[in-house]
């Protein structure tokens, strides 16, 4: 038995294992606060080359109880952190005596639509920037404040606050022009098998979404809901931490959150969800 066969057998075994676990209502629709209509299924972008018949929010793959937690902001524990970030928004930090509000006033106005287009090209810096990179650039360059850890509580809460201002808007990241090379790098990673289990992102999230990996109902791995409040660790989780967890689960040495590799992967994975609504903070298991 060669190694590839062994890993396929391993995947077959784990995929078959939890077939009796909780099944989600995949026909459900998501309306938040009886007001914001979320697009949880959308036509697959052309550049997916027909690999997915349609794109589906991870919300569709969760149990009824978990789905309900996202229907009302009061029931959504992720909103606790949005509240905390709103306090932070007005708090002066760093040598320049500024807060976020000093430049950006009310986030409801200044941040509307921002999450939907990140990661995006920053012409001045000549780099692809994630939202976390941009927040830290603001802190260092504009506020004279210390950078936050890339996936720290302060950072994920601020990302959630900014994301909330774009809820219901379609994810719409650019994939061409100056970001094209980074996008190609991310796509290459998506289809590369990593780790002792020799699994690519696509093996689980393109070839096997809807199936179970032990007790877990595999989604398409969309990141339109990040940062996400997980029932498992009862806090907001950054997309790069989820990437790290996935790569680790293939039994590989992972890339670091904030690394150029994960920035490229975030751009590519975000683009796979172009058309789904910004959902953050979403609730997952």
């Amino acid at each position: 038995m060669n190694k590839t066969t062994a890993s396929r057998l391993a995947l077959t075994l784990v995929l078959s294992f939890g077939a009796g676990a909780a099944l989600a209502d995949e026909n459900a629709d998501l309306v938040v606060n009886e007001e914001i209509e979320m697009t949880v299924r959308a036509p697959a972008p052309a550049y997916l080359d027909g690999h997915l018949p349609e794109i589906l929010s991870g919300w569709l793959f969760r149990s009824d109880e978990t789905q309900d937690l996202q229907r009302d902001d009061f029931d959504n524990p992720g909103m606790i952190f949005v509240d905390q970030a709103l306090d932070q928004w007005a708090m002066v930090d760093g040598s320049e005596g500024k807060s976020c509000a000093s430049c950006h006033d009310d986030p409801a106005d200044s941040m509307a639509g921002v999450r939907a287009v990140y990661p995006k090209w920053n012409a001045d810096a000549g780099e692809v920037r994630t939202l976390a990179m941009q927040i830290n650039d603001c802190r260092e360059t504009q506020m004279g404040a210390k950078k936050w850890g890339y996936t720290s509580g302060d950072m994920t809460a601020m990302e959630a606050l900014i994301s909330v201002q774009s809820r219901g808007m379609p994810v719409n990241v650019a994939i061409d022009g100056p970001v094209a090379a980074t996008w190609e790098q991310g796509k290459e990673m998506y289809y590369t098998r990593y780790g002792q289990l020799e699994l690519s992102c696509a093996n689980c999230h393109e070839d096997n979404y809807g199936n179970h990996i032990r007790a877990d109902h595999l989604s398409q791995g969309q990141i339109n809901g990040f940062p996400v409040y997980r029932l498992k660790n009862t806090k907001l989780n950054a997309a790069h931490d989820r990437f790290k967890g996935c790569v680790r689960d293939t039994r590989a040495e992972t890339f670091d959150p904030g690394s150029p590799e994960f920035v490229a992967l975030e751009l590519y994975v975000a683009s796979r969800g172009n058309g789904l609504s910004v959902e953050a903070p979403s609730v997952r298991n």
Binding site: A21, A22, R62, S63, D68, L231, K232, N233, T234
Partner: peptide, 12 residues
């Protein structure tokens, strides 16, 4: 209570 809980940490 749910028949099946997705995660034991938060069961409604």
């Amino acid at each position: 209570a749910p028949e099946i809980a997705e995660n034991g940490n938060t069961v409604p």
